[in-house]
Design a protein around this nucleic acid. Structure first.
Length: 879
DNA sequence: ACAAGCACGC
DNA sequence: GACGTACGTGCTTGTA
């Protein structure tokens, strides 16, 4: 049998594994996902490919010989996340256990090591296979060298041979470097020729073979723009070619004979698997060494007592408390048990023991008993479902973690504890399994897990509070987010009544109209197809009906609404498709979707507001999302007729802030003109139009106001010139001109924008009025796009985040006021800048005053806050 | 189970 | 025909 050499691009595969897998960690809190992914791949290679020679090559360090050619090589790259870099030493240990050679070489990259050894192997007549996710390596392909390219994830690879490459890209292996030289590579910061992408590069190479010949004949290129760019960036192109060319003659100190692979020692490998917690991989190892006494977990022991009888003595007045559920939706999920940790011990309380106990209820409902929890709102709501009104929550680890750094997207107890430097808790997934396999484990496992989690809350409270104190955010948690959690919990528990009959009736009407339109579209198309499938629709529009292609997506033709709108008038199928889309959305998301989440027992919708998710401090809403119920188009707005008060004779009352973000901007920026505009209570879009177009109020056309509105919108949401150009259907240059003129008109805003970016660069973060924080590490990136995005975020987050702070303050004050006034009125929903309540008729007049004054006075700014309100028999009518 | 494409709100 | 473009949630298709 022929000898087989496998060369693995270590960095590339580790990166892929890291991003493809969830952030797993073992019982000691060490992250293991990249190692796990890497190892499964190794096992598969060893089993399936049976290599005789094997090597894993790594990149050496920061600088390489390529940096001499180009200082900016790989510039602007995001730093390797620490969660990944900490896995590399362990990965090397793993390779040692497998007795697999691994190698790195100062000043050279893994690519060069692989290239050099691939050529050597080829010369010795070995069958060579390179494994990587980096397309640059395709240049090594030959009759004897194949390259396996990981696709999404790790389990799938494309095996590139010369013929496969020809089939895919229609070029030869040696042309890869010419292609890359023309295209550039933004991830490695290789410039290439701007405006040339894969398609153009290949077209050029088909005609001219290589870069040198292309430039010898550049004069004959007819496309003017393209030729100009090629000529202007000739140097870049040749330098890029040099950069992407793999050095196949690197000064390596190892030879092929060092790479011989003779199998691994099962014992060593299984030891390291156990250390890393790779239970599932243990039985994939050959050899006699197996240890079937279930693997002991060497987390420090934890002693959790199961409580079967609750007495007052169980409580000390300060305890960590946890409600354990397997389903995210705490309105529906059953409770598996409660965790309780105090200075006396760690306890697990079975559900019935707790809720049938008077002592438990007394403890929970007494505000003097302080509770430290994870996700206060979940605790509040799940106990409300059991008739218990828990009070005295003075710390929430989830909310604290989100305030400390909202960009962390994992706020599980294990993830937080890892960040705060504590170990000793499992991920839910490790204990419960995932997907369809998720289930409640045996009691002792459950008890231990709940005990560990609750203990972690107990342990981490101080550390988290110290961090908050450092950031001056203690008040933000205690006075804003925690009280808000209680209010949101009550809103969710109260729920919103929906008129199901009305929804069903609307659904039936829609169904008929959809069917009619579908038939008409099929007739116009001359065939039946699935209207909901862009994949099927694309070819019909752009091939069969020959409509002009405006935009393509990765997988085919774009058929999005803005594209279809541009095709209006070209074919009578277009308006029908747009109507079908509009009605189909209503039917699936808002009629069927809402009906699906109505609770049987209450006939109401009980959303969940996520208080610890967004980067700016806004809330979000799920199951259902009550923050995106249609309003713009009349057809969709009718959905709101199904949202009605829950009691006879009551009304829906809705109040919204007028232009709160722009008012906040006026305040923060201290811009005189903008402040004046709001003091005079002017129509802000008209005012902006006057400033931007230098005309008097009377001369403003509808179109000017529309454009000014889009610019204001852009300022509020931090969109780019590109974003503005899209929303106005103008060029990017024109959009940029609008932005410039806006900033000329409001010089205070310009100064603010400049200063906040500088400030963010210096501090690394921006803050809101209430000291909410958002870190912007990419603001110093050398990558233009990343940096620009961070800059816009720096400008926008204080505006949007402060607006979010203000409405939260208003909700807290309103809740207090409603109680003081002994009103039955109650809040039901929050939609970023508006509050929706329900109230008995006799309270409406009072509410007009109370709600608007509480909202307007939530905070003192140097511009007035303005609130509009309305009420009606349904949400639709409250307009 | 997951990605892609699309569409709704602020 | 470039690369990526405010924030979210949730639907349907299509492939694994």
């Amino acid at each position: 049998m022929k000898n087989k050499l496998i060369l693995i691009d270590g960095n590339s595969i580790a990166y892929r594994a890291f991003f493809a897998l969830p952030l797993l960690s073992n019982d000691k809190g060490v992250y293991t996902n990249a190692i796990y992914g890497f190892t499964t791949m190794l096992l598969r290679i060893i089993e399936d490919e049976k290599p005789t020679h094997l090597l894993v090559a790594f990149d050496a360090g920061k600088t390489t010989f390529r940096h001499k050619t180009y200082k900016e090589y790989k510039g602007g790259r995001q730093k390797t996340p620490s969660e990944l870099s900490e896995q590399f030493p362990l990965l090397r240990e793993m390779l040692d256990a497998f007795q697999i050679s691994h190698y790195q070489l100062d000043q050279f990259e893994a690519d060069d090591i692989i290239g050099t050894l691939a050529r050597k192997g080829e010369n010795e007549d070995l069958e060579v296979n390179v494994i990587s996710g980096d397309k640059d390596l395709l240049q090594l392909i030959s009759d004897k060298v194949t390259v396996s390219m990981t696709k999404k994830g790790l389990s799938e690879v494309d095996k590139y041979t010369p013929s496969f490459l020809d089939e895919k890209l229609e070029i030869r292996p040696d042309q890869i470097i010419d292609m890359k030289a023309l295209m550039g590579d933004s991830s490695d910061n290789i410039p290439g020729v701007p405006g040339v992408g894969e398609k153009t590069a290949i077209k050029l190479l088909k005609q001219y073979e290589n870069l040198e010949n292309l430039y010898d004949n550049v004069e004959e290129i007819s496309a003017k723009k393209l030729k100009e760019k090629l000529v202007n960036h000739k140097e870049d192109a040749f330098m890029s070619k040099e950069l992407v060319t793999i050095n196949c003659d690197s000064p390596i100190e190892i030879s092929l004979s060092d790479l011989t692979y003779q199998g691994y020692q099962a014992q060593k490998v299984s030891e390291i698997f156990k250390e890393l917690g790779f239970q599932s991989l243990l039985n994939r190892i050959d050899g006699e060494y197996t240890d079937d006494s279930s693997v002991p977990i060497d987390l420090p022991e934890i002693d959790v007592t199961i409580v079967n009888d609750i007495t007052k003595e169980l409580f000390t007045g300060v305890e960590a408390f946890e409600v354990e559920m397997l389903d995210e939706n705490y309105h529906l999920s059953s409770i598996e048990g409660f965790g309780l940790v105090n200075k006396q011990g760690k306890y697990f309380i079975p559900v019935n023991v707790a809720i049938e106990s008077d002592a438990f209820k007394e403890w929970a409902e007494n505000t003097n008993n302080k509770k430290w929890v994870f996700d206060a709102k979940k605790v509040i709501v799940s106990l409300l479902h059991k008739g218990i009104h828990i009070k005295g929550i003075e710390f929430d680890l989830l909310l604290a973690s989100h305030l400390i750094d909202p960009s962390e997207n994992n706020h599980d107890i294990p993830a937080i504890s890892h960040r705060l430097g504590q170990k000793g808790v499992f991920f839910d997934e490790e204990v419960y399994g995932k997907g369809a396999k998720r289930k409640v484990p045996e009691l002792d496992k459950l008890v231990e897990h709940v005990g560990r989690k609750t203990n972690m809350i107990y342990q981490l409270k101080e550390t988290a509070e110290e961090k908050l104190k450092e950031n001056e955010q203690s008040e933000l948690l205690k006075e804003l987010e925690l009280p808000l959690a209680l209010i949101l919990g009550e809103m969710e528990f109260t729920g919103v009544y929906v008129d199901q009959k009305r929804l069903e009736k609307m659904g039936e009407d829609l169904q008929e109209r959809l069917k009619t339109i579908e038939k008409e579209v099929h007739e116009l198309a001359g065939e039946t197809f699935n209207l909901n499938s862009p994949k099927q629709l694309g070819p019909i529009l752009f091939e069969k009906l020959s409509l002009p292609v405006i935009k393509k997506t990765k997988t085919g033709y774009s058929t999005s609404a803005d594209i279809l709108e541009q095709l209006q008038g070209k074919h009578e199928i277009i308006p029908k498709l747009l109507m079908y889309r509009q009605l189909g959305k209503l039917q699936s998301t808002y009629i069927e979707g809402l009906l699906r989440v109505v609770h049987e027992d209450t006939n109401k919708i009980h959303t969940r507001f996520n208080q610890a998710l967004t980067q700016t401090g806004r809330l979000s809403s799920t199951e259902p999302n009550l923050q995106n119920i249609p309003i713009r188009l009349e057809e969709g707005k009718k959905i709101r007729q199904a949202f009605t008060p829950s009691k006879e004779g009551w009304f829906i009352f809705a109040a919204d802030y007028s232009q709160i973000e722009l008012r906040v901007l006026a305040h923060i920026a201290g811009d005189e003109k903008l402040i004046e505009a709001f003091n005079d209570d002017m129509d802000i879009h008209t005012r902006t139009a006057m400033e931007v177009f230098h005309v008097e109020a009377g001369e403003i056309t509808d179109n000017m106001r529309r454009q000014a509105k889009a610019v204001n919108f852009g300022i509020v949401y931090g969109i780019s010139d590109y974003g503005l150009s899209q929303s106005l259907g103008i060029t990017r240059k024109e959009a940029q001109k609008f932005i410039d003129r806006y900033l000329d008109s409001y010089p205070g805003v310009r100064t603010y924008m400049e200063e906040i970016v500088q400030d963010a660069k210096q501090k690394g973060y921006v803050t809101t009025i209430m000291k909410r924080r958002r870190y912007l590490p990419e603001i110093t990136s050398r990558n233009f796009n990343r940096r620009s995005f961070a800059e816009r975020t720096a400008m926008n987050t204080p505006i949007q985040g402060s607006a979010a702070d203000i409405i939260k303050l208003a909700m807290i004050n309103l809740s207090i006021k409603l109680k003081e006034e002994n009103l039955q009125a109650r809040m039901l929903m929050q939609v970023h800048d508006e509050l929706i309540l329900e109230a008995p008729e006799e309270e409406i007049d009072l509410l007009k005053d109370i709600v608007s004054s509480v909202m307007e006075n939530a905070i003192e700014l140097n511009v007035p806050l303005k609130v509009d309100y309305a009420f009606g028999k349904t949400w639709y009518d409250a307009k």
